[in-house]
């Protein structure tokens, strides 16, 4: 079991947007200055709260996209059609704006550099966000732990962190594979979802005793987790994080 530290009570605080970066047509990375950020583990998330002029509040949970090395933190938000929170974060929020948040939270879907064994990351769509934080933490720690990322996207223009993933993949210890479900770039013959054959070819085997992190929409996570268990992986070593249009707790 993970360490569970007694901690101070979390309270809402106001961060300031330092920068925004467009990742895809529907996703944006928001760089934040957070005055009282205690640091976080790769894979943790935070809650964002918006308050309307009439006092109506909506909050959502977002994975942190960056590793902690002091200074700023990054969120990457995918716009949910008719969403209450994400359209504002993706289309409206600009540098200098305040943003209310609390965190970090979540002690299960996390990777620590001192953790033993290889790391298998499997992300669908913006489910790659906490996996990118794990890759960044791996790079920051100059870890020699072997890491593989399988990243399922609809088409080449859906890829978040294109340049960053290229840089991360240049490490001898990191392997990044993109899986295209609708449309592949030239030279990539395979179009289709992650299946048993692909897991067999590209993922660590049960004998490697990896810790596997799967993040994406609920149907993606369940399909991949089922494939892993069918391939002989210990369910206790498969950590999952689902997200959906309902977002986090209100």
């Amino acid at each position: 079991m993970e360490r569970t530290a007694v901690r101070r009570r979390l309270s809402w605080q106001v961060a300031t947007v330092a920068d925004v970066r467009r990742e895809t047509a529907t996703a944006r990375t928001i760089v934040l200055d957070v005055p009282e950020w205690p640091g976080h583990l790769a894979g943790q998330h935070l809650d964002v709260r918006l308050t309307a002029d009439d006092g109506y509040r909506a909050s959502r949970s977002y994975s942190i996209a960056s590793a902690w090395s002091g200074g700023q933190i990054e969120l990457t938000v995918e716009e949910v059609e008719d969403g209450e929170v994400s359209p504002y974060l993706v289309e409206v929020l600009k540098p200098g704006d305040p943003l209310e948040l609390r965190g970090p939270v979540g002690g299960w879907f996390v990777w620590r550099p001192e953790q033993e064994g290889p790391v298998q990351l499997i992300g669908g769509g913006s489910g790659v966000v906490p996996l990118r934080a794990i890759l960044r933490a791996h790079a920051e720690a100059a870890s020699t732990t072997p890491v593989r990322l399988l990243y399922s996207v609809r088409r080449p223009t859906s890829v978040i962190y294109v340049d960053d993933l290229k840089e991360l993949a240049s490490s001898d210890h990191v392997d990044v594979r993109l899986v295209y479900t609708r449309e592949a770039p030239d030279g990539e013959p395979r179009v289709g979802r992650i299946d048993a054959e692909l897991i067999d070819q590209l993922a660590f085997t049960p004998a490697d005793e990896p810790t596997t992190y799967v993040c994406g929409p609920t149907p993606f996570v369940e399909a991949v987790a089922d494939l892993l268990v069918a391939a002989g992986h210990d369910p206790a070593r498969v950590r999952t994080e689902r997200f959906g249009p309902t977002g986090g707790p209100q």
């Binding site: 901690r7 299960w108 999952t240 689902r242 997200f243 986090g248 707790p249």
Partner: peptide, 22 residues
């Protein structure tokens, strides 16, 4: 649709002194 217990971490931190999600 449902999410998973990870998404309850913030709400549960209002109530419990330790991280219940783990």
């Amino acid at each position: 649709t449902y999410l998973d217990g990870n998404a309850a971490a913030g709400k549960l931190s209002e109530i419990f002194a330790v991280d219940i999600t783990a």
